[in-house]
C-alpha cells in the first residue's frame, strides 16, 4: 500500500462525464453522478453529457415504486443547483454544462420539455469536439 500524493494545487481541468446507460437496469447511472458531485469539491470544469439510453436519465417523473429501486433523479436537481451556483458566483471558477446529444434525444421521441433540468441540446458532431477538448472522460 503506497499512498500517492498528487500535486493538484491550482490545477484546473475539464472533465466530461458520459452517461450512456438507462437510469435503471444497471448501476452505472447512479454511481457516475456521485463522481460528478465529488468533482465539484475540487472546482473542476465539467461537461455532464447524456447520450444513447442515457437521455432517459433526465426524463421528468421517474417512478420506481414498482421495481423497488431507489429513485435517484432528485440528484439531477442538486447537479443543476451546483451549476447555477457556479454560474452566478464570481468566486467559483467552475464551468459546468449539462448536455444532451441531439440524435439520441430525437431517436427516442424526446424533446427538451421532457427533461427535469435545463439542458443544452448538441449534435453528435459538435459533441465530439467537446469531448476532444476535455482533459478527462469518465463514463458510466
Amino acid at each position: 500500500m503506497a499512498e500517492y500524493e498528487f500535486d493538484t494545487e491550482g490545477v484546473k481541468k475539464t472533465f466530461t462525464f458520459m452517461n450512456r446507460k438507462a437510469p435503471y437496469g444497471t448501476v452505472y447511472a447512479l454511481e457516475v453522478l456521485e463522481t460528478v458531485l465529488i468533482s465539484a469539491a475540487f472546482e473542476q470544469h465539467a461537461n455532464i453529457v447524456f447520450a444513447d439510453d442515457g437521455v432517459y436519465q433526465l426524463k421528468a417523473g421517474h417512478d420506481t415504486a414498482d421495481i423497488g429501486m431507489k429513485n435517484f433523479s432528485p440528484t439531477f436537481g442538486i447537479i443543476e443547483m451546483e451549476k447555477e451556483d457556479a454560474d452566478e458566483d464570481e468566486d467559483i471558477d467552475m464551468n459546468w454544462r449539462i448536455i444532451v446529444e441531439k440524435e439520441s434525444m430525437e431517436a427516442r421521441g424526446l424533446t427538451e420539455d421532457d427533461f427535469k433540468v435545463d439542458v443544452e441540446v448538441i449534435a453528435a458532431a459538435e459533441l465530439a469536439d467537446i469531448i476532444d477538448a476535455s482533459d478527462c472522460v469518465i463514463g458510466g
Partner: peptide, 8 residues
Amino acid sequence: LVEAGMGC
C-alpha cells in the same frame, strides 16, 4: 479518482 484525473 478526481485527483488522479487532475494530476495525471
